[in-house]
């Protein structure tokens, strides 16, 4: 049970949050200009590193805000909210 630092509510149990996957995957500015492969990469391809990973979380059972944090996927150590 991770202890996740919500930037609005403070540290809370993981059970209050929804995981949002890799952070900084922006919606393409002009999807129509992308090839099928580029669009598929946006839709389906995500990094899966061992180590530091920027990821999105949503405090679904709390303030319902989205935020980004950095987690070490090997140790689950969490950096501060960003």
């Amino acid at each position: 049970m991770l202890l996740i630092p919500c930037p609005w509510c403070g540290p809370r149990d993981e059970a209050e949050f929804r995981y949002g996957g890799q952070a900084h995957v922006a919606y393409p500015r002009d999807p129509g200009a992308l090839t099928d492969e580029e669009w598929a990469r946006y839709l389906f391809f995500r990094d899966n590193p061992k180590g530091l990973f920027d990821e999105r979380w949503n405090h679904a059972a709390g303030c319902r805000r989205w935020f980004t944090l950095t987690r070490d996927t090997a140790t689950n150590e969490i950096g501060g909210p960003r």
């Binding site: 393409p28 002009d30 999807p31 129509g32 992308l34 099928d36 669009w39 839709l43």
Partner: peptide, 10 residues
């Protein structure tokens, strides 16, 4: 554009 539009061009 709207969410999903690009996929219909696949």
């Amino acid at each position: 554009d709207f969410i999903g539009k690009r996929s219909y061009a696949r």
